[in-house]
Design a protein around this nucleic acid. Sequence first.
DNA 1: GTCTATATTCGGATAGAC
DNA 2: GTCTATCCGAATATAGAC
Lengths: 205, 205
Amino acid sequence: MSSPVVARVSFKEQMLLAREEAIVKAVSRLLAEKGFEAMTVDEVAAEVGIAKASLYKHFPSKEDLAAAAMVRVMRRAQDFLLSLPAGDAPLDKLRAAARWTMELQLAGEMPSLPGRGSSLRATLMSCQPYLDGLLQVREQFGGWIEAAQASGALNPRLPAVAVLYTLYARACDPVLEFLKAGGRHSDAEIVELVLSTCFDGLNAR
Amino acid sequence: MSSPVVARVSFKEQMLLAREEAIVKAVSRLLAEKGFEAMTVDEVAAEVGIAKASLYKHFPSKEDLAAAAMVRVMRRAQDFLLSLPAGDAPLDKLRAAARWTMELQLAGEMPSLPGRGSSLRATLMSCQPYLDGLLQVREQFGGWIEAAQASGALNPRLPAVAVLYTLYARACDPVLEFLKAGGRHSDAEIVELVLSTCFDGLNAR
DNA sequence: GTCTATATTCGGATAGAC
DNA sequence: GTCTATCCGAATATAGAC
């Protein structure tokens, strides 16, 4: 058993981390809903229910706040990829990954990537945890794509990088939002529809 | 022949329209590069080479400025669709339209649509010229999609609206930017690559 | 570490001379 | 209609008490 002092420190640290988790979760939601530029720090503070100044004790700037949200979703993606059964075919893993990102987007938890000119870009490009996660996901995907192409499941004439980006882009595909706004399809139907157009194409087979 | 007075008025009007065209063109470029929120009116003024106050003589607000750019690109789209040979198969027209939007994006002239929370959305939703253009394009596309499905060229099991949105979304597909940043493909190759994945899918055929 | 209150910067919009 | 100069609100960030 740990001493009371150690226990209290650990408890405080847990509180701290829980608070930060709540902050980052709120940021993720707002980032998904409005994008980085339109999101304000005041909104974040209001959603979490703490004062704005307190936010700045945890994160030094709005950019760092958003970067933390991007790191969080990247971590969740890595965890998901690692949780996929090793026995599944590479193509199935790719489909599952694309499905996961789309479900996250429909749930309003997928922060949208910054546009080319955004100040968030610079912060993200010098954020090692984010870059590490991105790299690992790329390598994971890369292996599956090559295997799926070698087995004849994926079109081998497509450059692997094009396949990678195409799957990656499902995370911010506006078609999901459009179809949801139409109101004629359930979330599950939307996901399967977009998955189908992505892997099978628009043309008849 | 017109009288000198009429001629001078016409000339001045031409100058006015040319100036406004230059403004809207600059807005389109900046809107494509940075998005609505990150674009500043000062930048627009600097790019056009006039004072900011002069901009506000032509357009009452930043939102109206951006809306004008959206209307312009919608007009160009309508003109392009009408210019397609009547003899072409519906599927070919759809492919040509998707190719056109992607070439425009690669040229940096495709203003990116506003996110859900943007103040531009409201302005756009009450901008009749834009809505009219959108409606006409939808109807044009809708007819071609139905015809292509009836002829067995397009997958008839997909809802027409899903096909519509999927093609529409090519205008802001981040895959184009990613592949361009990779530097391993020409613009023409990128367009054909994305067209292929869109119509034929990622799976082998 | 959290709060209230404030400093500061930035950007949309306007006044008024020409 | 274009300019210079300015206003003013909004949003990022900080000071300082508790």
